[in-house]
């Protein structure tokens, strides 16, 4: 009888995949969740735009006003021509955790920020800035996005089109590591980095992409 019970218990626990303690069971499930949240590796950024010929890099990343563009700027500005609807892409895979429309306190213009969380440590921010004080244009910008909050996007997938209303319309591409803005140059694929840097140097000859 005792042997039967032991065999039955052993068979049951082998079959059931028992967890020994609540903490271990939660950890096991958290590991499963971790795989859904994002990869453990660092991001490898691709092109944030669809066609290189459609955009000009107007400003790079800087922590200091001594950069060629004369101001601290925590992002890369991808400038487009007025009246266009150019497509922007997810530079890496991730979860859309924020889509926010608001009026920029400095310029007074509306903008729409999209945040894509790559993993626990890294996120990307696309600030769609149509350069307009008209709220309806910002609504049009939201309507031109292909994504929604809570959605997973793949690398290279279209985020949406930038509605270029005013002169100076651009996407400000920000990159964060552990909630701090960082220069993304070390995370771009070499060909993309070369493409972006070359574009920036058409505006600021000899400039670096980042000044820290």
């Amino acid at each position: 009888m005792r042997l039967t019970l032991i065999i039955a218990l052993s068979a049951f626990q082998l079959w059931a995949g028992l967890h020994f303690g609540v903490g271990r069971a939660i950890r096991s499930q958290a590991q499963e969740l971790s795989a859904e949240v994002g990869p453990s590796r660092d991001p490898q950024l691709g092109r944030p735009y669809q066609n290189a010929g459609d955009v000009t890099i107007a400003r790079g990343y800087s922590n200091t006003a001594s950069a060629p563009w004369g101001a601290a700027h925590h992002g890369l500005d991808f400038l487009v021509s007025t009246g266009t609807r150019h497509v922007f892409l997810a530079a890496e895979e991730g979860w859309v955790t924020e889509i926010k429309k608001f009026a920029n306190e400095i310029t007074g213009n509306w903008q729409v920020n999209v945040k894509i969380q790559f993993n626990k440590n890294f996120s990307m921010r696309y600030a769609f800035e149509p350069f307009t004080a008209n709220s309806a244009d910002a609504d049009a910008q939201i309507a031109n996005l292909n994504i929604s909050k809570g959605q997973k996007v793949l690398k290279g997938e279209s985020i949406g089109r930038l509605v270029a209303v005013g002169s100076g319309t651009h996407v400000d591409f920000g990159f964060k590591k552990k909630d701090s803005d960082v220069c993304p140059s070390g995370y771009f694929a070499p060909d993309v980095l070369n493409e972006i840097t070359t574009s920036l140097r058409t505006v600021y000859p000899g400039a670096n992409l980042c000044y820290e």
Binding site: F20, A25, L33, V37, T97
Partner: peptide, 27 residues
């Protein structure tokens, strides 16, 4: 002791969740 547990986890960001039934042994 031994028994079935319902485990529910919610990640901060992105706000994705996971739930499952697990058998747990406590000593």
């Amino acid at each position: 002791d031994i028994g079935p547990y319902w485990i529910y986890l919610r990640n901060f960001e992105p706000a994705i969740t996971r739930q499952s039934w697990e058998w747990i042994v406590n000593t």
